[in-house]
Design a protein around this nucleic acid. Structure first.
Lengths: 238, 238
DNA sequence: TGTTTTTGATAGTAATACTATCAAGTTATT
DNA sequence: AATAACTTGATAGTATTACTATCAAAAACA
């Protein structure tokens, strides 16, 4: 059983039966991702998805209890795969800076995903992660979703990155906050650069990915300053 | 006409008629905010709001074309008021650091809002800003909403803060990105500390507001490093 | 006082997010 | 090859939501 299989195992319970095991199931997941990328999550529904794959709405409900769990499944899968990549990077014997750089590449451009026999291009899944990932946890039922493990893979990714940041800057008191900020902001600023460009500087001078990396690396370096009068200590009073 | 009146003027067009001018209108806005705080935006609807204020659903539709525009109205109002406060802080003759500190206080704890004859407590409106603000712009129709001015007040707040950051750290190349990050992350980390605490360090040691301020101030200080070999220049290659 | 505007009360519609049912097809078992 | 078990297709139906339409009563205003 490969590492990725373990990821898929861990998200099965968001579905009623494992979509990866059947052609219909794989089609539901793959085409749904395309459809969400095209229409957005709100405007996508199982009727439209059914039409896209030539199956009735009811068949989709045999795989997913509801639309929200369907989104949870996709996002948990995504962060699970990213988390695997993170682990691999962290286990490599590179410098902390090289590891951080690789992780930033990972956060700013998604890898392709192989889902059973189907391939989902990185830019398609990344598009929906950018626009819909927040919608998994900004709900009134976060807490129950959380106890059901919906955000385990996202949280694991966060804590892997936080762990690395802690090693990189042992005295920095906010490694988790910085890790989650990096994750969320890599998505946000790409969204901003496309839709609300006055909210960001990213994507103007260089390519979006280069700018994003530069920006985040600047934040990371900031955690390293342990000498100089202004920053002997990280607890600062303005 | 006061500065706040100008804010309210600028958001009228999200409503069908100015809610601030009538008792019913004010009741719709105030009680709606309470109801969203209680139920969340998705679970709130105009029927429930009608029940809460003792008026039929249809009466609310005379003030707001739809639910989304109602949210846009509230959020544009909120950021308009915050923007006014920002301007006042920026126009004061304090040091840059004092100004930034005041702005952080503003972003981490909302002021009360006086809406016509009604008062809306800061913590109530802040609760819905934390949970629902993203939902105004993470939609498939951002771009049209944007051209209709839906995010003008939010963008104005961002650029005021970015401007201040530019003065504070003239060489820092990402003032807008940092400004919007500070705004969004002040909301996010408060949300995380309540619902996904493993995603943040905020709210553990000190009070949430103190931790948030400390964290953001750390990021800000990072923009100031203009000497030392590691950071002669902000363009960094890892 | 008469007129205009605002509200209440009620009814109705299209779309969405599902659920139920049953026959047809497919797969697994012996 | 026959039968049982399971999966899918086809269709119909329900409750809720997000609105729209209408008309009379009430309130505001001139």
């Amino acid at each position: 059983m490969s590492n990725l299989d373990i990821v898929f195992e861990s998200i099965i319970h968001f579905a009623l039966k494992d979509p990866r095991q059947t052609g219909l199931g794989r089609s539901i997941v793959k085409n749904g991702i395309y459809l969400i990328a095209e229409l957005g999550f709100e405007e996508m529904n199982f009727k439209k998805l059914g039409k896209a794959i030539g199956s009735p709405e009811a068949s989709i409900y045999r795989y997913f209890e509801n639309k929200h769990k369907y989104l949870l499944y996709i996002m948990a899968m995504y962060w699970g795969i990213i988390d695997q990549h993170c682990e691999k990077i962290i286990q490599s014997n590179k410098s902390h800076e090289e590891k951080l750089s690789s992780i930033l590449d990972l956060l700013c451009t998604s890898p392709d995903i192989s889902y059973g026999s189907e391939k989902i291009p990185g830019d398609v899944i990344y598009a929906i992660v950018i626009g819909e990932s927040v919608k998994t946890f900004m709900t009134k039922h976060v807490d129950t979703d959380n106890t059901h493990g919906a955000f385990r893979t996202l949280k694991s990714t966060t804590s892997h990155i936080a762990q690395l940041l802690s090693e990189y800057s042992p005295d920095y008191p906010f490694p988790k906050a910085l890790a989650s900020t990096i994750i969320e902001m890599s998505l946000y600023h790409r969204y901003f650069s496309e839709h609300l460009p006055s909210m960001t500087d990213i994507g103007k001078e260089q390519s979006i990915v280069d700018d994003l990396k530069q920006w985040i690396i600047g934040l990371l370096r900031a955690t390293r300053i342990t000498n100089g009068e202004e920053s002997q200590n990280f607890r600062i009073s303005l």
